[in-house]
Design a protein around this nucleic acid. Structure first.
Lengths: 120, 120
DNA sequence: TTTATTGTTCGACAACTATCGAACATATTA
DNA sequence: TAATATGTTCGATAGTTGTCGAACAATAAA
C-alpha cells in the first residue's frame, strides 16, 4: 500500500512539472508537433526536405526556389504559404534566409534528431 | 538546363502525390502530430506513458487508473480529459479499453516506432 | 526609369478546438 | 435498493487557425 502511494506521488511530481512547464523542451515539442499537425504544412515541410535533398544530390542549384515551387505545387496562395513557412520557422523546423529576391529555406536537421530522441 | 527540368518534374510528382493524399501514411502522420500538438494532450500522453512504465517496473498495480489520475494531476474537467483521450485514440496513439468502471489506456508502441522511422 | 517578380502584412471570414458544467449511463459499494 | 464513483455525451462559448485577396515593399530585369 505504501509502495503504491510513493509511486503515485512520483507521478504527481512528474505531471506537475509538465503542467507548470518547468520543462522547456516539452513546450517546444508541442510546438513542433503543432506545426507538423496540419496536412498542408506537413506537405510543405516534406517538400522542402525532399527538394533540398534532391538538389544536394544533383548539385545543380540551390534551395532558394522553395517558396515559388511550393506555390506552384500546392494549391495555396502566396500569403498562405508565407504564413505556413512562418509557423515552421517559429517551431524551429526551418531556417530561412533571404537571398536577394528569393527566400532560402533549410530544414533544421538537429531538431529532427531531437524528435527521434524524444520518442525513446 | 534539361537536368534541372527533370528534377523539377520529380518534385512536382512528389508533391502532387502528397497533396492528393495518395499516401495514406502521410495523412496519418499529420493526424498524429496534430494530436500531440496541444500541450495538454502531450502532457496527458506522457503521463500515461510514464505511469504505464512505472507501474510495469514496480509490478504493483494496473494502468487502469490513468483517467482519474489525469483528472487529479492536470487541472482539467472530466469531460475535457475524455475529449483529449478520444483524440489520442483517434490518432492511434492510445489503445483504450473499458475494465469494469475504469478505462484502461495503453500507449501504442508500434506507432512510436513508426514516428521514429518517419524522421529518417 | 518603368515593369515584373518575390515575398510580406493586413483585415476578413468561416471552420475548428479547448474548455466547461449539466445531465446522463454504467458499475461498485453500502 | 440507495448512494457513490467513473466516464460519456451534449450544448455553449471564447479563442485559435487556415485561407483568401488586396495593398505594399524590395529586388531584378527591360
Amino acid at each position: 500500500m505504501n509502495k503504491n502511494f510513493a509511486i503515485e506521488n512520483k507521478l504527481f511530481t512528474f505531471v506537475r512539472k509538465l503542467s507548470n512547464n518547468m520543462t522547456n523542451s516539452h513546450q517546444n515539442m508541442a510546438k513542433v508537433f503543432k506545426a507538423l499537425g496540419s496536412e498542408q504544412r506537413l506537405n510543405l515541410f516534406k517538400m522542402i526536405y525532399y527538394w533540398e535533398k534532391t538538389m544536394d544530390v544533383n548539385m545543380c542549384c540551390g534551395v532558394e526556389k522553395a517558396f515559388s515551387k511550393a506555390c506552384d505545387c500546392m494549391n495555396l496562395s502566396r500569403s498562405t504559404i508565407s504564413h505556413h513557412l512562418k509557423e515552421l520557422q517559429n517551431a524551429n523546423l526551418l531556417v530561412c534566409e533571404r537571398k536577394g529576391q528569393m527566400l532560402s529555406c533549410q530544414v533544421n536537421k538537429e531538431l529532427l534528431n531531437d524528435i527521434k530522441i524524444f520518442f525513446d
